[in-house]
Design a protein around this nucleic acid. Sequence first.
DNA 1: TAAAAAAATTATAATCCTTCTAATTTATTG
DNA 2: CAATAAATTAGAAGGATTATAATTTTTTTA
Lengths: 168, 168
Amino acid sequence: MEGRINRIKKQLHAQKYKLTPQREATVRVLLENEEDHLSAEDVYLLVKEKAPEIGLATVYRTLELLTELKIVDKINFGDGVSRYDLRREGANHFHHHLVCIECGSVDEIQEDLLGEVEKLVERKWHFKVKDHRLTFHGICHRCLEKREAENQKKHEQEEKKEREAEKV
Amino acid sequence: MEGRINRIKKQLHAQKYKLTPQREATVRVLLENEEDHLSAEDVYLLVKEKAPEIGLATVYRTLELLTELKIVDKINFGDGVSRYDLRREGANHFHHHLVCIECGSVDEIQEDLLGEVEKLVERKWHFKVKDHRLTFHGICHRCLEKREAENQKKHEQEEKKEREAEKV
DNA sequence: TAAAAAAATTATAATCCTTCTAATTTATTG
DNA sequence: CAATAAATTAGAAGGATTATAATTTTTTTA
């Protein structure tokens, strides 16, 4: 964690920005919640626990700054708020997302699925790809498993009923 | 055009909705600007030309309704407004976008680039894909060509200078 | 066809997210 | 240490979207 903070500090310094206490608190919150997809408001509330004096505007400005420096990626899942996602260290492409339309969960895919597709886009559409956003909407593995379990149960009950009917 | 309107009318009726004059005017605007990616405000201003009495709220509600029925897709390119994009007739997947970070243009890719990727996601992550959003950010062919032309020009001028220098 | 009920629309207010502004604080430089 | 620059705070302002109440249009039903 500390190493990562230090590297981010260097990235800021390289562009003549400082890692102020407020900025550091914000980065820490992002690191501690790396799996989540926090909105600016979410970040603000969490940062307040560490640094109660911080203002919402500062959080917005810090997130904007981190986005500019490609330390975080700003993403929108269509629910009216922007969410902020730490870029994995060394990752040169933005990871992808699986949004469940049943339970609302958001999972991440770190694998680069688009290598070939991007090559094709550059060749066929003569478009120089710099970044991408790929999100799948559908049903997550948890909800699928829940469904299967329910179907299983229903089947068993039906079978039980049938057996009882046969007895009578 | 009329045929398309009629088919949309039927889709509405199938769900017990009516194609009111305001809704029809909105759909016409979307059809007439199929290449664009209009915001609700854009649509509102264009619909006003046909039906000046329409209210902004109606446009929003109509677009929401059309989105529910999968007649249009709501999409967000990160500029603070939602944009609405007619689904191509018969298309069972949402098309992709190329957003130019230099000139702001948005081009569409109708080809299904994700067939294999989606199969992989379903297998490997056990996620049932229902829809997707894929947007590339980069430099469009127009801007690339402009750049090349400028480089070409610069080269020519440099060569000219060199020749003149040799003369003297 | 007239009355009642339902659906849709209008205009405007309200809300929510985000950005801007002015005043203040903190850090940096000569 | 004074002067300048950078960053932050609190709150106002802005813009996009949604909610509300009154009105209009359409549909249903007697």
